[in-house]
């Protein structure tokens, strides 16, 4: 952790955030999902002003099954930072802070079904609009999809 980042985290009243370093050498901080916008403000202040990636990891056996993974980058220090937040369904949108997050939040909604509150237009992005379900959830099995446009197959 850099000093500025430590200070930014200390300044929040979020006591005892779980944090550490992953196998790739990137620091991570795990936050309650409602605190994401506040924490994003804080880390932007600490220099992590670039949004790189947002994705999710699904663990169906856990009540708050989706773990969102925000990846941010600091141009000054050339460091990457990962924010993790667990949610069962809803998460606050950060499009007002990072306009680049727009398509990424749509993708997580599309593939996992996480609803981003405050997103300007949360629609499917990769799957067809009339698709039923969210394919990247771990409890959606491979195969077994009905074949589309099969009217004339006897």
């Amino acid at each position: 952790m850099t000093e500025t980042l430590d200070q930014a985290l200390d300044s929040l009243t979020l006591a005892d955030l779980e944090h550490g370093t992953s196998a790739d050498g990137i620091d991570f901080v795990r936050v309650p999902v409602d605190a994401i916008p506040r924490l994003v403000d804080a880390v932007i202040g600490a220099g992590f002003g670039r949004f790189i990636d947002l994705t999710a990891v699904d663990e169906p056996r856990r009540a708050d099954r989706f773990e969102l993974q925000y990846l941010l980058h600091s141009m000054q220090d050339q460091r990457w930072l990962r924010l993790k937040a667990r949610t069962a369904e809803h998460a606050p949108s950060i499009v007002s802070q990072f306009e680049a997050a727009n398509w990424y939040e749509r993708e997580v909604f599309d593939l996992y079904g996480v609803l981003f509150d405050g997103h300007p237009g949360l629609t499917r992005i990769l799957m067809p609009d009339d698709w039923d379900g969210h394919p990247l959830r771990r409890d959606v099995a491979l195969g077994g999809e009905p074949v589309q446009f099969s009217d004339n197959i006897s």
Partner: peptide
């Protein structure tokens, strides 16, 4: 691989590319 997560960014012809593997 041992349990964990990794993302190593590389410069592809189009920009920052990386695989986040859990």
């Amino acid at each position: 691989p041992p349990a964990g997560e990794a993302y190593i960014p590389v410069e592809s012809p189009r920009g920052e590319l990386g695989f986040y593997v859990v």
